[in-house]
Write a protein that binds this DNA or RNA. Sequence first.
DNA 1: CGATCTGTTGAAGTGAGTCAATAGTGGTGG
DNA 2: CCACCACTATTGACTCACTTCAACAGATCG
Lengths: 243, 243
Amino acid sequence: MSTAALQHEALPASCARACSGCVVREQGICQALETPHLATLQGASRWRTLTAGEAFCREGDPVDRVASVKSGVLRLSRLLPDGRRHITGFAFPGDFIGLTLETLHGHTAEALGEAMLCLMPRRQFETMRHDFPELDSQLYTRAAQELVAAREQMLSLGRKSAVEKVATFLLEMSERTQQMPLGPCRAFLPMTRTDMADYLGLRLETVSRVFSTLRGAGLITLVTASEVLIHLPEVLRDYADGV
Amino acid sequence: MSTAALQHEALPASCARACSGCVVREQGICQALETPHLATLQGASRWRTLTAGEAFCREGDPVDRVASVKSGVLRLSRLLPDGRRHITGFAFPGDFIGLTLETLHGHTAEALGEAMLCLMPRRQFETMRHDFPELDSQLYTRAAQELVAAREQMLSLGRKSAVEKVATFLLEMSERTQQMPLGPCRAFLPMTRTDMADYLGLRLETVSRVFSTLRGAGLITLVTASEVLIHLPEVLRDYADGV
DNA sequence: CGATCTGTTGAAGTGAGTCAATAGTGGTGG
DNA sequence: CCACCACTATTGACTCACTTCAACAGATCG
């Protein structure tokens, strides 16, 4: 995944529309389709750009389109009646929205910055699943991965301290956004402190305090509020596991 | 699901072994297979009885068999290095173990009481997935459901109070174990207070205190420590959602 | 350059945790 | 049949990690 895709720098116009040249072709669920079938996919899909904060869907909306993230990042959230919010996850380029087969959206999906989606009507999605059974195999694999990630997050939410949660989160974000495997480990944080808090089951002040603690311990440096250098990933890993 | 299956009363010998007469045929993933294919399934699968506390697999074990729960209940848990435990979920009759396609088990699966599993070697499972693509469709559907449940649990772990967590849990257990839709709502709790606590991100003392609170509020009665009558399910629902 | 949003830090409060004592419950064998 | 033991659940008193409330500091932008 490129920094360009993450931060939604304009995609080259030359590859626009063509599924064969799609920037997330390798990561997307559409990778399951043989090249000859891409024409079908291409005919069924449309692009849409979301501005910062704009919602692709809201909790309770009927699911009439599924989507693949081409660039940018979305936050997936749920609300309790009194307004408490929980962020279930973040959708990065290559991630698929609509995996859960619900008829009503279980989550609100909002763009953190500018983002681009590749959309397909749900009806057409179901038709393609029917016509190309290899899609279900791909969707299953993806759902299984999401399930593993969800359970990892449950462990964090249920049994980890604030420091452990934030350390875990930084390593997770570093894995999902890193483009330079060598050199100092870097994490790009496209979300606010409130978003992180709602993802980790903490308050924004607590997240901020933990950042300061980790900074004080020499484990990280905040280049900007949304970019972190991880100096000692192994030690941070120990923090994350409570060692 | 019958009380017999939940509590693992002996299954009738007459239907033993035959997939066509399997007690969880309607719930299991094998429902995707047409009756003529059941012979293949039957040849590949074996039964195994677990005694109370016995493990089907431990975290880190290689996944060399997948399993379908025929009777009894299993707890699926993970450990942090210092011994803190989190229970990710409970597997009831009809549930499938091995959905996540990992090569190493991410969880320990232990029987709460006596339990019976229908086992299949992983290799054979992969062969069947290849030979019968409709299985992947079924597995995908199941994984999608599990994902929805996992995200619901994340909301609970991340943003709900102790009372809300326990109320949510009681309603969930009532749904999964109830056999009498009419009359007073009943929940069977085959796990200990410690198990509930490790599932909800609480301590066993807190779970116990919340039970007393709900009892005091007239919402529930504890018939035994592991059987609850829910007198006012709608009010309990409000408690669960923090209303 | 002021307005607004986001992030940081401090001081005080609280929900759940910890430690500890007691009370049920179920199984075993004398 | 009941006395005993081991295990599980309940309840109380005290503590603490995280929250809440509040003030302030940076960043971003029209």
